[in-house]
Design a protein around this nucleic acid. Structure first.
Lengths: 205, 205
DNA sequence: TAAAGACTATACTCACGAGTAACTTGTATT
DNA sequence: AATACAAGTTACTCGTGAGTATAGTCTTTA
């Protein structure tokens, strides 16, 4: 904790620095994947952007597949956290759902969140693909659970939770394809407006 | 027109056969692109599936980029046709929109339609990418136009046509990612149910 | 019947990019 | 001081897959 300005870093500082570098690699990679696509981005490109050489990336992450897997994991973890947080909230099922959806939309405007929806399963190698799918399924289940809760307590119009889940997820995932980070509106505003629009559809009349 | 069963095909038959072969290449390619992904599918693979060799594909289509471009064009053309047909229909703006959305959903369960939503712009080479984007923008414009019409004649709840367009397009495009052609429900049923769900959101109360 | 053109195959070239070997330098450990 | 490890580098290998050169067959046309 007592960070002296000594040129000799402590073990703690060094491990923190290592983590920061690893993160920087992921951040650079995910930006380029989102801009140019995974297959159009070589690890040489990523390394060049960071001003290092390719083996450096291999030093921090095993291989290209790992890099992508870590990126999507970071996005999916955010979503999972958002789901857990929403479910723990007081209020009606509809309230919790709206909270979750809003956060979901925001995450889709984040680098790692965008990567999740822009990454096709097949881009990953079999093992990673399995993990990726499992995580996505968890999100799906969480969403369906929230919907089912709302329908059960009457705060949501009755219907098929699975179908509604697909519709909502689709509408929000799509953000990751059209949203420009340089746009005029703040992510927060977009999220709110979009969720309000969607809410008209599932709230009872 | 008078197809004799002579072993000597007429010029008309031959050109029809050529078109059929070209189509078969595209059909085989798009199926494999959808299943395994564009980058994971080599033209050798496609050729093998058809029982021919790679140069045969190059004989009918210039290169891999062309193959993909033709596939997405076939999907986009269907969407454009659907938009034109819907706009020509009598009834309220909302009626026309619902018709279009239903057809839109169905197309996303078709081989070529799925290819459209599963294809990232960057997979195409610059020229093709420009064409691809231009076509997609046309669809977007059509959708927004239908929405604006409905809002203007009062058959749709007022709101931001652009945002609603994104929400609807997203919900329906997503079908191309989750729908399994082998599923229990018929595409038609899925389309109808999904659009009904969405319509709850944009019809006036 | 000769020449041209359509269609298909075999067998290449060639670039690209993932991943690695081997080496350098600095820092921590014993 | 010696050794081991961390963090990089340069300079490779090597598989894959897009695209092509060349040749062969069959059909149509002059």
């Amino acid at each position: 904790m007592n960070d002296l300005d000594s040129p000799f870093p402590t073990a703690r500082q060094r491990s923190r620095e290592r983590a920061a570098k690893r993160e920087a690699v992921l951040r650079a990679a995910v930006r380029m994947f989102n801009e140019r696509g995974f297959h159009q981005t070589s690890l040489d490109d990523v390394a060049a952007r960071l001003g290092v050489s390719k083996p450096t990336i291999y030093h921090y992450l095993g291989n290209k597949d790992q890099v992508l897997l870590e990126c999507v994991k970071l996005g999916l973890t955010q979503l999972l956290d958002a789901a857990a947080a929403s479910r723990a909230l007081p209020g009606t099922g509809a309230d919790r759902l709206v909270t979750f959806l809003t956060r979901y939309a925001e995450i889709n405007m984040d680098d790692f969140g965008r990567c999740v929806v822009r990454t096709r399963d097949e881009a990953l190698e079999p093992d990673s693909r399995t993990k990726f799918r499992a995580l996505k399924r968890q999100i799906d289940d969480q969403l369906r659970g929230l919907i089912a809760d709302g329908m059960a307590d009457g705060s949501l119009a009755p219907g098929d939770p699975k179908l509604l889940g697909f519709a909502l997820a689709g509408a929000l995932n799509w953000i990751g394809h059209w949203h420009e980070p340089t746009g005029a509106l703040a992510p927060n505003d977009i999220a709110r407006q979009l969720v309000t629009t969607l809410a008209r559809g599932f709230l009872p009349r």
